[in-house]
Design a protein around this nucleic acid. Structure first.
Lengths: 240, 240
DNA sequence: CAGTGGTCTAGACCACCGA
DNA sequence: CGGTGGTCTAGACCACTGG
Protein backbone atom coordinates (compact mmCIF):
# COMPACT_ATOMS: atom_id res chain seq x y z
CA UNK A 1 0.00 0.00 0.00
CA UNK A 2 2.33 2.72 -1.15
CA UNK A 3 1.86 6.43 -1.26
CA UNK A 4 -0.41 7.34 1.61
CA UNK A 5 -0.99 10.90 0.43
CA UNK A 6 -4.49 11.46 1.77
CA UNK A 7 -5.41 13.56 -1.27
CA UNK A 8 -6.13 17.25 -0.81
CA UNK A 9 -4.49 17.12 2.63
CA UNK A 10 -1.10 18.29 3.78
CA UNK A 11 1.80 15.93 3.08
CA UNK A 12 2.55 13.53 5.89
CA UNK A 13 5.88 15.15 6.71
CA UNK A 14 4.16 18.51 7.07
CA UNK A 15 1.74 17.00 9.54
CA UNK A 16 4.60 15.73 11.64
CA UNK A 17 6.24 19.15 11.50
CA UNK A 18 3.01 20.80 12.56
CA UNK A 19 2.63 18.39 15.42
CA UNK A 20 6.09 19.12 16.74
CA UNK A 21 5.79 22.86 16.28
CA UNK A 22 2.47 22.83 18.05
CA UNK A 23 3.92 21.05 21.07
CA UNK A 24 6.65 23.67 21.23
CA UNK A 25 4.52 26.73 20.65
CA UNK A 26 2.00 25.60 23.22
CA UNK A 27 4.76 25.22 25.73
CA UNK A 28 4.45 21.47 26.22
CA UNK A 29 8.00 20.97 25.06
CA UNK A 30 10.45 23.57 26.34
CA UNK A 31 13.88 24.44 24.96
CA UNK A 32 16.26 21.64 25.88
CA UNK A 33 13.52 19.05 26.14
CA UNK A 34 13.91 15.89 24.10
CA UNK A 35 11.89 15.44 20.95
CA UNK A 36 10.68 11.88 20.33
CA UNK A 37 13.12 9.81 18.34
CA UNK A 38 12.48 9.00 14.72
CA UNK A 39 11.50 5.45 15.55
CA UNK A 40 9.03 6.71 18.15
CA UNK A 41 7.46 9.14 15.70
CA UNK A 42 7.42 6.39 13.11
CA UNK A 43 5.27 4.21 15.34
CA UNK A 44 3.11 7.09 16.47
CA UNK A 45 2.22 8.21 12.96
CA UNK A 46 2.56 4.91 11.12
CA UNK A 47 4.94 6.34 8.54
CA UNK A 48 8.23 5.18 7.14
CA UNK A 49 11.40 6.42 8.72
CA UNK A 50 12.43 8.42 5.65
CA UNK A 51 9.30 10.50 5.95
CA UNK A 52 9.76 11.09 9.66
CA UNK A 53 13.39 11.89 9.04
CA UNK A 54 12.49 14.50 6.46
CA UNK A 55 10.11 16.24 8.84
CA UNK A 56 12.57 16.46 11.72
CA UNK A 57 15.50 17.28 9.46
CA UNK A 58 13.66 20.25 8.01
CA UNK A 59 12.86 21.50 11.49
CA UNK A 60 16.55 21.28 12.28
CA UNK A 61 17.41 23.30 9.18
CA UNK A 62 14.85 25.88 10.24
CA UNK A 63 16.48 26.09 13.64
CA UNK A 64 13.49 24.82 15.56
CA UNK A 65 15.21 21.73 16.92
CA UNK A 66 18.79 20.63 17.37
CA UNK A 67 19.91 17.16 16.36
CA UNK A 68 22.98 15.29 17.56
CA UNK A 69 23.88 12.03 15.96
CA UNK A 70 23.94 9.20 18.43
CA UNK A 71 22.34 11.35 21.07
CA UNK A 72 18.96 12.57 19.95
CA UNK A 73 16.85 15.58 19.08
CA UNK A 74 16.01 18.41 21.44
CA UNK A 75 14.00 21.60 21.19
CA UNK A 76 16.44 24.31 20.13
CA UNK A 77 17.80 26.40 22.99
CA UNK A 78 17.84 29.70 21.23
CA UNK A 79 14.81 30.30 19.14
CA UNK A 80 16.92 32.64 17.15
CA UNK A 81 14.74 35.17 15.53
CA UNK A 82 16.53 34.63 12.28
CA UNK A 83 14.98 35.13 8.96
CA UNK A 84 16.23 35.63 5.50
CA UNK A 85 16.76 39.29 4.89
CA UNK A 86 16.06 39.71 1.21
CA UNK A 87 18.46 41.99 -0.54
CA UNK A 88 16.99 42.65 -3.91
CA UNK A 89 17.18 44.86 -6.88
CA UNK A 90 15.68 48.18 -5.82
CA UNK A 91 13.84 48.63 -9.10
CA UNK A 92 12.09 45.29 -8.81
CA UNK A 93 11.26 46.09 -5.22
CA UNK A 94 9.55 49.31 -6.24
CA UNK A 95 7.67 47.62 -9.07
CA UNK A 96 6.47 44.95 -6.70
CA UNK A 97 4.95 47.61 -4.50
CA UNK A 98 3.03 48.81 -7.53
CA UNK A 99 4.97 52.06 -7.64
CA UNK A 100 6.91 53.77 -10.39
CA UNK A 101 10.67 53.33 -10.37
CA UNK A 102 13.04 55.96 -11.64
CA UNK A 103 16.72 56.79 -11.67
CA UNK A 104 19.02 59.78 -12.03
CA UNK A 105 22.49 58.91 -13.23
CA UNK A 106 24.85 61.32 -11.53
CA UNK A 107 28.14 59.87 -12.61
CA UNK A 108 29.57 57.14 -14.82
CA UNK A 109 33.33 57.02 -15.13
CA UNK A 110 36.56 55.12 -15.11
CA UNK A 111 38.79 55.64 -12.12
CA UNK A 112 42.15 54.48 -10.85
CA UNK A 113 41.88 52.41 -7.70
CA UNK A 114 43.17 54.12 -4.61
CA UNK A 115 44.67 52.09 -1.81
CA UNK A 116 41.38 51.29 -0.11
CA UNK A 117 39.65 50.22 -3.31
CA UNK A 118 42.65 48.20 -4.44
CA UNK A 119 42.48 46.29 -1.19
CA UNK A 120 38.76 45.61 -1.51
CA UNK A 121 39.08 44.42 -5.09
CA UNK A 122 42.35 42.65 -4.52
CA UNK A 123 44.02 44.42 -7.44
CA UNK A 124 47.08 46.64 -7.76
CA UNK A 125 46.77 50.26 -6.82
CA UNK A 126 45.94 52.48 -9.79
CA UNK A 127 44.24 49.60 -11.60
CA UNK A 128 41.25 50.76 -13.60
CA UNK A 129 37.81 50.41 -12.04
CA UNK A 130 34.38 51.47 -13.19
CA UNK A 131 32.44 53.86 -11.00
CA UNK A 132 28.78 54.84 -11.07
CA UNK A 133 26.64 57.00 -8.84
CA UNK A 134 22.91 56.73 -9.26
CA UNK A 135 19.89 57.99 -7.34
CA UNK A 136 16.96 55.59 -7.40
CA UNK A 137 13.47 57.00 -7.16
CA UNK A 138 10.13 55.63 -6.08
CA UNK A 139 7.25 57.65 -7.49
CA UNK A 140 9.74 60.41 -8.09
CA UNK A 141 11.02 60.46 -4.53
CA UNK A 142 14.66 59.51 -3.87
CA UNK A 143 15.00 56.35 -1.85
CA UNK A 144 18.51 55.13 -2.56
CA UNK A 145 21.84 56.67 -3.44
CA UNK A 146 23.94 53.97 -5.04
CA UNK A 147 27.67 54.55 -5.18
CA UNK A 148 29.23 51.57 -6.89
CA UNK A 149 32.60 50.39 -8.11
CA UNK A 150 32.86 47.52 -10.57
CA UNK A 151 35.73 45.33 -11.63
CA UNK A 152 36.19 45.66 -15.43
CA UNK A 153 37.28 42.04 -15.61
CA UNK A 154 33.89 40.90 -14.33
CA UNK A 155 31.75 43.21 -16.47
CA UNK A 156 33.73 44.79 -19.33
CA UNK A 157 30.73 46.56 -20.82
CA UNK A 158 29.38 47.95 -17.57
CA UNK A 159 29.83 51.59 -18.49
CA UNK A 160 27.87 51.25 -21.72
CA UNK A 161 24.60 50.39 -20.01
CA UNK A 162 21.59 52.64 -19.72
CA UNK A 163 21.10 52.68 -15.99
CA UNK A 164 17.79 54.47 -16.33
CA UNK A 165 16.15 51.19 -17.28
CA UNK A 166 18.63 48.53 -16.19
CA UNK A 167 19.92 48.89 -12.67
CA UNK A 168 23.53 48.03 -11.97
CA UNK A 169 22.36 45.29 -9.63
CA UNK A 170 20.26 43.77 -12.35
CA UNK A 171 23.01 44.04 -14.95
CA UNK A 172 25.56 42.43 -12.69
CA UNK A 173 23.25 39.61 -11.75
CA UNK A 174 22.87 38.78 -15.40
CA UNK A 175 26.48 39.22 -16.43
CA UNK A 176 28.61 38.34 -13.46
CA UNK A 177 27.06 35.38 -11.64
CA UNK A 178 27.40 35.95 -7.93
CA UNK A 179 29.11 33.27 -5.96
CA UNK A 180 29.52 35.13 -2.70
CA UNK A 181 28.35 38.35 -1.18
CA UNK A 182 28.85 40.02 2.15
CA UNK A 183 27.11 43.06 3.49
CA UNK A 184 26.82 45.22 6.51
CA UNK A 185 24.00 47.46 7.59
CA UNK A 186 24.75 50.50 9.68
CA UNK A 187 23.61 54.07 10.10
CA UNK A 188 25.37 57.22 8.98
CA UNK A 189 24.67 60.92 8.71
CA UNK A 190 24.14 62.32 5.22
CA UNK A 191 26.87 64.56 3.91
CA UNK A 192 25.83 67.84 2.40
CA UNK A 193 26.00 66.47 -1.15
CA UNK A 194 24.24 63.22 -0.26
CA UNK A 195 21.50 65.08 1.56
CA UNK A 196 20.87 67.20 -1.49
CA UNK A 197 20.47 64.21 -3.80
CA UNK A 198 18.24 62.37 -1.35
CA UNK A 199 16.13 65.43 -0.60
CA UNK A 200 16.89 65.47 3.06
CA UNK A 201 18.84 67.59 5.51
CA UNK A 202 22.58 67.54 6.02
CA UNK A 203 23.48 65.20 8.87
CA UNK A 204 20.11 63.46 8.81
CA UNK A 205 20.17 59.77 9.68
CA UNK A 206 20.55 57.34 6.79
CA UNK A 207 20.63 53.58 6.53
CA UNK A 208 23.88 52.51 4.96
CA UNK A 209 24.33 49.13 3.37
CA UNK A 210 27.71 48.25 2.01
CA UNK A 211 27.85 45.23 -0.17
CA UNK A 212 30.73 43.41 -1.80
CA UNK A 213 30.05 40.66 -4.29
CA UNK A 214 32.39 38.02 -5.59
CA UNK A 215 31.96 36.42 -8.96
CA UNK A 216 34.08 33.40 -9.70
CA UNK A 217 37.53 34.11 -8.31
CA UNK A 218 37.45 37.88 -8.35
CA UNK A 219 35.71 40.68 -6.50
CA UNK A 220 33.15 41.92 -8.98
CA UNK A 221 31.60 44.90 -7.28
CA UNK A 222 31.55 47.05 -4.17
CA UNK A 223 28.59 49.26 -3.46
CA UNK A 224 27.58 51.76 -0.81
CA UNK A 225 23.81 52.04 -0.73
CA UNK A 226 22.49 54.99 1.22
CA UNK A 227 18.81 55.14 2.18
CA UNK A 228 16.96 58.02 3.79
CA UNK A 229 16.33 56.77 7.31
CA UNK A 230 12.80 58.11 7.37
CA UNK A 231 11.73 56.73 4.01
CA UNK A 232 13.16 53.26 3.88
CA UNK A 233 13.40 50.24 6.12
CA UNK A 234 14.27 46.59 5.97
CA UNK A 235 11.64 44.12 7.02
CA UNK A 236 11.91 40.64 8.37
CA UNK A 237 9.52 38.03 9.56
CA UNK A 238 10.08 34.91 11.55
CA UNK A 239 7.49 32.23 12.06
CA UNK A 240 7.82 28.94 13.84
CA UNK B 1 24.83 -2.99 -3.08
CA UNK B 2 23.36 -0.41 -0.77
CA UNK B 3 24.93 2.62 0.78
CA UNK B 4 27.46 3.93 -1.67
CA UNK B 5 29.00 6.41 0.75
CA UNK B 6 32.62 6.34 -0.40
CA UNK B 7 33.90 6.65 3.17
CA UNK B 8 35.66 9.81 4.27
CA UNK B 9 34.20 11.63 1.25
CA UNK B 10 31.34 14.04 1.00
CA UNK B 11 27.85 12.53 0.87
CA UNK B 12 26.62 11.78 -2.62
CA UNK B 13 23.95 14.45 -2.51
CA UNK B 14 26.56 17.04 -1.57
CA UNK B 15 28.59 16.05 -4.58
CA UNK B 16 25.62 16.60 -6.84
CA UNK B 17 25.00 19.96 -5.20
CA UNK B 18 28.63 20.93 -5.69
CA UNK B 19 28.48 19.89 -9.31
CA UNK B 20 25.45 22.03 -10.00
CA UNK B 21 26.76 25.01 -8.07
CA UNK B 22 30.05 24.75 -9.91
CA UNK B 23 28.35 24.86 -13.29
CA UNK B 24 26.48 27.96 -12.20
CA UNK B 25 29.34 29.79 -10.58
CA UNK B 26 31.60 29.13 -13.54
CA UNK B 27 28.98 30.59 -15.82
CA UNK B 28 28.27 27.45 -17.81
CA UNK B 29 24.64 27.53 -16.73
CA UNK B 30 23.11 31.00 -16.67
CA UNK B 31 20.00 32.17 -14.84
CA UNK B 32 16.98 30.78 -16.64
CA UNK B 33 18.90 27.86 -18.11
CA UNK B 34 17.51 24.41 -17.52
CA UNK B 35 19.12 22.17 -14.95
CA UNK B 36 19.24 18.47 -15.94
CA UNK B 37 16.18 16.57 -14.81
CA UNK B 38 16.35 14.21 -11.89
CA UNK B 39 16.35 11.18 -14.16
CA UNK B 40 19.23 12.64 -16.18
CA UNK B 41 21.26 13.32 -13.04
CA UNK B 42 20.37 9.88 -11.79
CA UNK B 43 21.96 8.27 -14.83
CA UNK B 44 24.92 10.64 -14.84
CA UNK B 45 25.87 9.93 -11.24
CA UNK B 46 24.52 6.42 -10.88
CA UNK B 47 22.48 7.28 -7.81
CA UNK B 48 18.92 6.61 -6.78
CA UNK B 49 16.33 9.22 -7.54
CA UNK B 50 15.70 10.02 -3.88
CA UNK B 51 19.32 11.06 -3.49
CA UNK B 52 19.26 13.20 -6.60
CA UNK B 53 15.96 14.67 -5.47
CA UNK B 54 17.40 15.63 -2.13
CA UNK B 55 20.30 17.45 -3.72
CA UNK B 56 18.20 19.50 -6.10
CA UNK B 57 15.49 20.11 -3.54
CA UNK B 58 18.00 21.59 -1.12
CA UNK B 59 19.33 23.87 -3.81
CA UNK B 60 15.77 25.02 -4.40
CA UNK B 61 15.33 25.77 -0.70
CA UNK B 62 18.59 27.70 -0.77
CA UNK B 63 17.29 29.75 -3.67
CA UNK B 64 19.91 28.57 -6.15
CA UNK B 65 17.48 26.91 -8.52
CA UNK B 66 13.76 27.14 -9.15
CA UNK B 67 11.65 24.03 -9.59
CA UNK B 68 8.26 23.75 -11.24
CA UNK B 69 6.39 20.50 -11.07
CA UNK B 70 5.67 19.11 -14.48
CA UNK B 71 7.98 21.61 -16.08
CA UNK B 72 11.49 21.24 -14.77
CA UNK B 73 14.30 22.92 -12.89
CA UNK B 74 16.05 26.10 -13.96
CA UNK B 75 18.86 28.20 -12.54
CA UNK B 76 17.23 30.82 -10.32
CA UNK B 77 16.71 34.18 -11.97
CA UNK B 78 17.58 36.30 -9.03
CA UNK B 79 20.45 35.03 -7.02
CA UNK B 80 18.92 36.87 -4.19
CA UNK B 81 21.60 37.91 -1.84
CA UNK B 82 19.55 36.59 1.00
CA UNK B 83 21.04 35.28 4.13
CA UNK B 84 19.72 34.65 7.53
CA UNK B 85 20.14 37.81 9.52
CA UNK B 86 20.69 36.56 13.00
CA UNK B 87 18.87 38.53 15.62
CA UNK B 88 20.26 37.43 18.91
CA UNK B 89 20.51 38.29 22.50
CA UNK B 90 22.89 41.23 22.75
CA UNK B 91 24.58 39.89 25.85
CA UNK B 92 25.41 36.59 24.19
CA UNK B 93 26.65 38.46 21.17
CA UNK B 94 29.07 40.47 23.26
CA UNK B 95 30.26 37.39 25.12
CA UNK B 96 30.86 35.61 21.84
CA UNK B 97 33.16 38.43 20.79
CA UNK B 98 35.13 37.81 23.94
CA UNK B 99 34.12 41.15 25.40
CA UNK B 100 32.54 42.10 28.69
CA UNK B 101 28.80 42.72 28.68
CA UNK B 102 27.13 45.16 31.00
CA UNK B 103 23.80 46.85 31.52
CA UNK B 104 22.35 49.94 33.13
CA UNK B 105 18.71 49.61 34.09
CA UNK B 106 17.15 53.03 33.59
CA UNK B 107 13.54 52.19 34.18
CA UNK B 108 11.33 49.29 35.22
CA UNK B 109 7.65 50.05 35.64
CA UNK B 110 4.04 49.21 35.05
CA UNK B 111 2.19 51.42 32.60
CA UNK B 112 -1.27 51.78 31.16
CA UNK B 113 -1.36 51.10 27.44
CA UNK B 114 -1.97 54.17 25.34
CA UNK B 115 -3.78 53.86 22.05
CA UNK B 116 -0.72 52.94 19.99
CA UNK B 117 0.48 50.29 22.43
CA UNK B 118 -3.00 48.88 22.82
CA UNK B 119 -3.13 48.41 19.08
CA UNK B 120 0.25 46.70 18.94
CA UNK B 121 -0.57 44.34 21.78
CA UNK B 122 -4.17 43.87 20.72
CA UNK B 123 -5.48 44.71 24.17
CA UNK B 124 -7.88 47.35 25.49
CA UNK B 125 -6.57 50.85 26.02
CA UNK B 126 -5.37 51.42 29.58
CA UNK B 127 -4.59 47.73 30.05
CA UNK B 128 -1.52 47.19 32.18
CA UNK B 129 1.80 46.58 30.44
CA UNK B 130 5.32 46.18 31.75
CA UNK B 131 7.93 48.62 30.58
CA UNK B 132 11.71 48.51 30.83
CA UNK B 133 14.46 50.72 29.53
CA UNK B 134 17.97 49.35 29.62
CA UNK B 135 21.31 50.43 28.19
CA UNK B 136 23.50 47.51 27.16
CA UNK B 137 27.25 47.95 27.30
CA UNK B 138 30.17 46.26 25.62
CA UNK B 139 33.39 46.75 27.56
CA UNK B 140 31.68 49.61 29.31
CA UNK B 141 30.67 51.37 26.10
CA UNK B 142 26.96 51.74 25.33
CA UNK B 143 25.90 49.82 22.24
CA UNK B 144 22.17 49.39 22.60
CA UNK B 145 19.31 51.28 24.18
CA UNK B 146 16.50 48.82 24.71
CA UNK B 147 13.04 50.25 25.26
CA UNK B 148 10.67 47.35 25.74
CA UNK B 149 7.04 46.73 26.57
CA UNK B 150 5.90 43.31 27.74
CA UNK B 151 2.50 41.73 27.99
CA UNK B 152 1.91 40.66 31.63
CA UNK B 153 -0.08 37.68 30.44
CA UNK B 154 2.97 36.28 28.66
CA UNK B 155 5.50 36.93 31.42
CA UNK B 156 3.82 37.73 34.76
CA UNK B 157 7.10 37.94 36.68
CA UNK B 158 8.95 40.06 34.15
CA UNK B 159 9.40 43.04 36.45
CA UNK B 160 11.01 40.97 39.19
CA UNK B 161 14.03 40.01 37.12
CA UNK B 162 17.53 41.33 37.59
CA UNK B 163 18.25 42.68 34.15
CA UNK B 164 21.89 43.25 35.01
CA UNK B 165 22.54 39.54 34.52
CA UNK B 166 19.55 38.27 32.59
CA UNK B 167 18.60 40.31 29.55
CA UNK B 168 14.93 40.76 28.74
CA UNK B 169 15.49 38.93 25.47
CA UNK B 170 16.95 35.97 27.30
CA UNK B 171 14.23 35.95 29.91
CA UNK B 172 11.47 36.09 27.35
CA UNK B 173 13.02 33.32 25.26
CA UNK B 174 12.95 31.09 28.30
CA UNK B 175 9.52 32.02 29.58
CA UNK B 176 7.43 32.95 26.59
CA UNK B 177 8.25 30.63 23.68
CA UNK B 178 8.28 32.68 20.51
CA UNK B 179 6.05 31.53 17.72
CA UNK B 180 6.32 34.57 15.49
CA UNK B 181 8.38 37.69 15.29
CA UNK B 182 8.52 40.60 12.91
CA UNK B 183 11.07 43.33 12.79
CA UNK B 184 12.08 46.38 10.84
CA UNK B 185 15.44 48.04 10.57
CA UNK B 186 15.64 51.73 9.87
CA UNK B 187 17.70 54.75 10.81
CA UNK B 188 16.78 57.54 13.16
CA UNK B 189 18.41 60.52 14.84
CA UNK B 190 19.08 60.25 18.55
CA UNK B 191 16.97 62.44 20.77
CA UNK B 192 18.76 64.46 23.40
CA UNK B 193 18.02 61.90 26.11
CA UNK B 194 18.91 58.93 23.94
CA UNK B 195 22.14 60.55 22.84
CA UNK B 196 23.13 61.06 26.45
CA UNK B 197 22.59 57.43 27.39
CA UNK B 198 24.40 56.18 24.30
CA UNK B 199 27.28 58.63 24.70
CA UNK B 200 26.77 60.28 21.38
CA UNK B 201 25.58 63.62 20.05
CA UNK B 202 22.00 64.76 19.78
CA UNK B 203 20.68 64.05 16.30
CA UNK B 204 23.46 61.59 15.48
CA UNK B 205 22.49 58.70 13.23
CA UNK B 206 21.32 55.54 14.97
CA UNK B 207 20.24 52.15 13.75
CA UNK B 208 16.74 51.44 14.96
CA UNK B 209 15.34 47.95 15.12
CA UNK B 210 11.78 47.51 16.20
CA UNK B 211 10.73 44.03 17.04
CA UNK B 212 7.39 42.53 17.97
CA UNK B 213 7.18 38.96 19.15
CA UNK B 214 4.17 36.74 19.43
CA UNK B 215 3.97 33.89 21.86
CA UNK B 216 1.09 31.50 21.46
CA UNK B 217 -1.95 33.56 20.63
CA UNK B 218 -0.91 36.86 22.15
CA UNK B 219 1.61 39.59 21.47
CA UNK B 220 4.25 39.06 24.10
CA UNK B 221 6.63 41.94 23.61
CA UNK B 222 7.41 45.03 21.61
CA UNK B 223 10.89 46.49 21.64
CA UNK B 224 12.66 49.48 20.16
CA UNK B 225 16.37 48.77 20.00
CA UNK B 226 18.53 51.79 19.28
CA UNK B 227 22.17 51.33 18.27
CA UNK B 228 24.81 54.01 17.80
CA UNK B 229 25.29 54.12 14.05
CA UNK B 230 29.03 54.39 14.34
CA UNK B 231 29.51 51.59 16.82
CA UNK B 232 27.20 48.85 15.66
CA UNK B 233 26.31 47.14 12.43
CA UNK B 234 24.49 44.10 11.20
CA UNK B 235 26.43 41.63 9.11
CA UNK B 236 25.35 39.19 6.51
CA UNK B 237 27.02 36.70 4.27
CA UNK B 238 25.78 34.89 1.27
CA UNK B 239 27.58 32.03 -0.42
CA UNK B 240 26.47 29.93 -3.30
C1' DC C 1 0.51 11.84 -24.11
C1' DA C 2 5.38 11.47 -22.14
C1' DG C 3 8.22 13.86 -18.98
C1' DT C 4 8.70 16.41 -14.87
C1' DG C 5 9.03 16.98 -9.92
C1' DG C 6 6.51 15.73 -5.06
C1' DT C 7 5.86 12.36 -2.05
C1' DC C 8 6.17 7.84 0.08
C1' DT C 9 7.80 2.99 1.41
C1' DA C 10 10.47 -0.80 3.60
C1' DG C 11 14.16 -2.04 3.85
C1' DA C 12 19.64 -1.16 4.56
C1' DC C 13 24.60 0.15 6.39
C1' DC C 14 27.01 3.41 8.90
C1' DA C 15 29.05 6.71 12.59
C1' DC C 16 28.27 8.18 16.75
C1' DC C 17 26.75 8.65 21.75
C1' DG C 18 25.92 7.23 26.34
C1' DA C 19 25.55 3.68 29.57
C1' DC D 1 26.24 -2.57 23.83
C1' DG D 2 21.56 -0.64 22.10
C1' DG D 3 19.60 3.52 20.45
C1' DT D 4 20.23 7.61 17.81
C1' DG D 5 20.40 10.18 13.59
C1' DG D 6 22.79 10.38 8.49
C1' DT D 7 22.63 8.47 4.34
C1' DC D 8 21.21 5.52 0.55
C1' DT D 9 18.36 2.28 -2.54
C1' DA D 10 14.88 0.61 -5.88
C1' DG D 11 11.02 0.69 -6.41
C1' DA D 12 6.03 3.23 -6.41
C1' DC D 13 1.75 6.47 -7.22
C1' DC D 14 0.56 11.03 -7.93
C1' DA D 15 -0.25 15.98 -9.87
C1' DC D 16 1.16 18.85 -12.96
C1' DT D 17 3.16 20.73 -17.41
C1' DG D 18 3.81 20.92 -22.13
C1' DG D 19 3.29 19.70 -26.83
Amino acid sequence: MPSAIPHSTLPAYEQIKSYIKKQISEGHWLPGDAVPSESALQKKFGLSRMTVNRAVKELAVEGVVTRVRGSGTVVAQLHQISSTLQVRDIREEVLERGHTPGARVLLVEKVKADKALAQIFEVRSSSTLFHSVIVHLENGIPIQLEDRYVNPQSAPHYLEQDFMVMTPTRYLIDHAPVTQASYTISAAPATRAQAQELAMGEGDACLLMTRTTISGQSVASHARLLYPGTRYRFHGLFAL
